[in-house]
Nucleic acid binder design. Structure first.
Lengths: 251, 251
DNA sequence: CCAAGTTGTATAGTATAATAGACAACTCTT
DNA sequence: AAGAGTTGTCTATTATACTATACAACTTGG
């Protein structure tokens, strides 16, 4: 250790970013260590009291940091036992029948979907092309955040024909599922027609909704679903937290 | 604007990173806009009250954000007039006579140097080679933060022969200048022998000392200075905030 | 079963982030 | 010279981050 000048020589100085709370710095520090492989999957983290001592902070502060990591899906805690690393990813299988709730339920987790916003807007050239519309035609746009076991997995922007699915936003709020929303309109066997996958970094809005730092990667999944009669029923642009999901594409 | 669900629909939600203070989010937001060219050099920012209204926060919070930007050297404020963008960089000319204080003073700014730590350590192979020592020989290592007009410009790790400059840390604390410290030991006309320049991102420690975000670039300047008699007197590894300095190399 | 070690919860105190409002000091344009 | 608009400073209040301490609830290994 370097000899320090008297000024600002607190033991927690090395992580104190100005304007960033202590628990957040500790959480980010652990996220870094976990992502870099310093604690492997399933490993037990040191006890809260030990971490607190190591950072020179109160145990409550460490608890807040651990709660954050749990909210990010990086760890889980077991009362009386400890806090454990969980870096295994949800296997998200993309095929003709791709249903978020079914995939998550099959993996033994509780699926969740929440509508964060909606509006009717004129279709862009891109979206119109996908849905077989003319640019400027009205489409219904939904912003949906999906999660498994209360951990956000993806945010998706979904466009549907506005006339055919006019109250889809209301129906989605009730049913909390795109599958059930389409069923409400009599579309029961829609299937995935194509899927395009790329990668990017989370922007500020997505990062907030996914509980990610802005420098974490997302898998960008664009897709088109069609009805049994081959009519386009919805197209999406989803952003999946790459730390929490691995995509499997059937071929 | 998208129609929002009632949950968490505050007007400042789009920048509220969890565990990051409001003023910091606003400061980072402005830094981003400035760096991306949305406000050019010399331009006046909107009045504090207007910014406050725009973000839906109190004016004091905006003032804190502006103080942060000023501390980062990105803006300066003029009482009664406004806050102005300042993105021009200090021209740091590297030649045979390279003296931080002189360069900064010549640019019309007030130079400042502060010792953040020091110790005697065995020389690494690299450092020993530079100073003409054997690996393991004792060298004195200084950690110095330099600034202009109270804005950090560089952090530098400096190694000197430990025997010859034994109390250099103490002398530096008094003189606040490497030039004057060497003069104290009778070394008056040292000159730059070689300089090697590369680039990197600020690590957590350097970012804190330079008041940079960790994703901002730094210019890494490694160099060797020798006395008039051609004896190595010090070698450094400096990290310059690339947002605040441009290096000019004489040839 | 017990004891040691762990996470969960409760209470209370201190420091500070953010809000709110008022006014002083200053600049700039008219 | 005046007045509108700006930054600087002051006081006060509320919400919350962090600390401190204690104990309950639970797991694990002997």
């Amino acid at each position: 250790m370097l000899t320090r000048t008297p000024r600002g020589s607190s033991s927690k100085n090395h992580l104190l970013a100005r304007g960033v709370m202590l628990w957040r710095c500790i959480a980010d520090d652990f996220e870094q260590m976990i992502l870099v492989g310093k604690h492997e999957n399933g490993a037990r983290l040191p006890a809260e009291s030990e971490i607190a001592a190591r950072y020179g902070v109160n145990r409550h502060t460490v608890r807040r940091a651990m709660a954050e990591l749990a909210a990010r899906g990086l760890v889980y805690t077991e009362r009386g036992s400890g806090t454990y690393v969980k870096t295994d990813k949800l296997d998200y299988r993309i095929g003709q029948r791709t249903r978020f709730s079914e995939i998550v339920a099959a993996a033994g987790h509780e699926a969740e979907g929440r509508l964060h916003g909606h509006r009717i807007e004129p279709a862009s050239e891109e979206i119109a092309g996908r849905l077989g519309f003319k640019p400027g035609d009205n489409v219904l746009r939904l912003e949906i955040v999906r999660g498994a076991d209360r951990v956000p997995i993806s945010v998706a922007t979904t466009w549907l024909p506005a006339d055919r699915f006019h109250d889809a936003a209301k129906i989605f709020r009730q049913t909390r599922s795109i599958t059930r929303t389409l069923a409400h309109y009599g579309v029961n066997n829609y299937r995935r027609k194509w899927t395009r996958i790329s990668a990017a970094f989370a922007d500020a809005v997505d990062a907030g909704r996914l509980r990610l730092s802005v420098h974490r990667p997302v898998l960008v999944v664009e897709s088109l679903d069609v009805s049994a009669e081959d009519e386009p029923v919805l197209t999406t642009r989803g952003r999946f937290a790459a730390d929490r999901v691995a995509l499997t594409v059937e071929s």
